[in-house]
Amino acid sequence: MPTPGSAAVEVEHARRLRAGLWLGLLGMLIFAGTIPMTRLASGSNEAPQLPPVFVAIGRAGVAGLLSVAYLLVTRAPWPRKSHWTMLFMSALGNVLGWPLLLGLAVRRVDAMHASVITGLMPLATAAVGALMLHQRPSRGFWAFALLGAALVVAFAAWSGAGRPQLGDLLLLGAVIASSIGYICGARVSSGPQGMTAEQTISWVLVLALPATLPVLVMQWPTAPVHPAAWAGFAYVATCSMWMGFFAWYRGMAWGGALSVSQVQLLQPFVSILLSVAVLGERLRPATLGFSIAVMACVYLGRRMSVGAPRPRS
């Protein structure tokens, strides 16, 4: 018979799981704006705006300066010795790899195309999480994750994204880099000795400043740029690169990296809708059908067990 104390612990655990899912959803919504805003900031090969390298790396320089201020104001402690490797890996994946590869890709493909290809990220994140966090997702969990990913691939093929091209390869590399960065950041912000989500992403960005700040300064454009491009840059620098991770890392720490990562299955379709609103790209009706199917996969996948971490040998 459960004691009152154990019942209270279970209630609190369930509350944190729900809160983790909602925070993950908030982070996903913020990140969904990354692709259309990156496209808005950098333009296309036919109508270029800000240089892709400046958008990709310079935004991390801005977020890094904001992180320095945040860490000083909050008097955040220094990371533990065991955290530095994961922070460095997260910086390589989320601060350098993902934005640079994405920035180069959206010069070659439109935002809808990029949104569909990056829909593979939940599966990549779940696979990396299973390996790095020693978790045991159930067969049902993997079945719905694979089904959701297959729907994304089918949508890409239907919309003409099935042909291999450089933009797709760049996007695939961006997905892998970001997935590794997500899990490494989640490892730092979880556990009894972990840092808070806000401290984690701030230290990641500060660690990358020696690489990002020189790019921000030296690549600052001298030619006139459309104000909308600067608005896109401001969004990816403050929201995509910084504040979105506040919600995302805490969501994965509370709700579990494998489970929370599945809300990313909705991200390509949110990005597509934003591409219509922000960029004026044409929305095809079949997108709604794929959106409903993917949402069903997310709901059913959430009902599948994830399992406890495997004991390390």
Rank of each mutant, 00 (worst) to 15 (best):
A56K: 11
I272K: 01
G232Y: 02
T85V: 15
E281M: 09
A277M: 13
P309V: 05
V153F: 00
A174F: 03
W158V: 07
A223R: 14
P221Y: 04
A19P: 13
C297E: 10
S67K: 10
G58D: 04
A76W: 08
A228G: 06
M243K: 09
S313V: 15
P227H: 07
A223E: 13
L274R: 07
L104D: 14
F245V: 05
C184K: 05
L171F: 04
R136D: 10
L104P: 11
R284A: 06
A257F: 04
R18F: 11
R310Y: 12
M112P: 14
M37K: 10
Y70S: 12
L17G: 07
V206I: 08
A211D: 11
V9P: 03
F290C: 08
V11D: 12
L172M: 13
T200D: 08
A229S: 06
P214G: 02
E198A: 15
Q49V: 13
G194P: 07
L23M: 15
L40K: 05
W203V: 14
T34N: 14
L279E: 01
G251C: 03
V95N: 09
L102V: 07
V206C: 11
A149K: 02
L72Q: 14
A111L: 05
S178Y: 08
V128Q: 00
G20Q: 08
I35N: 06
R39L: 11
P311G: 04
P48M: 00
L50K: 12
R108D: 02
L40I: 09
W230C: 10
Q267A: 13
L216E: 13
A114H: 02
R303L: 12
A228R: 15
F155Q: 15
G301Y: 00
L65N: 10
V106S: 02
V306R: 06
R15F: 14
L146A: 06
G148H: 00
L209E: 06
R282G: 09
H134W: 12
L266P: 10
S202R: 03
P227M: 07
A234E: 03
F155N: 15
A8I: 07
G280P: 03
A286W: 07
V270E: 03
G24Y: 02
G167V: 11
P52Q: 01
Q219Y: 14
H134N: 13
M132N: 07
Q267N: 11
G103T: 01
A229P: 03
Q49A: 12
S202Y: 01
Q49G: 03
G185C: 05
P2G: 11
G64C: 11
S259G: 04
L266Q: 05
R80Q: 14
P214M: 02
G289T: 09
M1N: 11
L258A: 15
W230S: 10
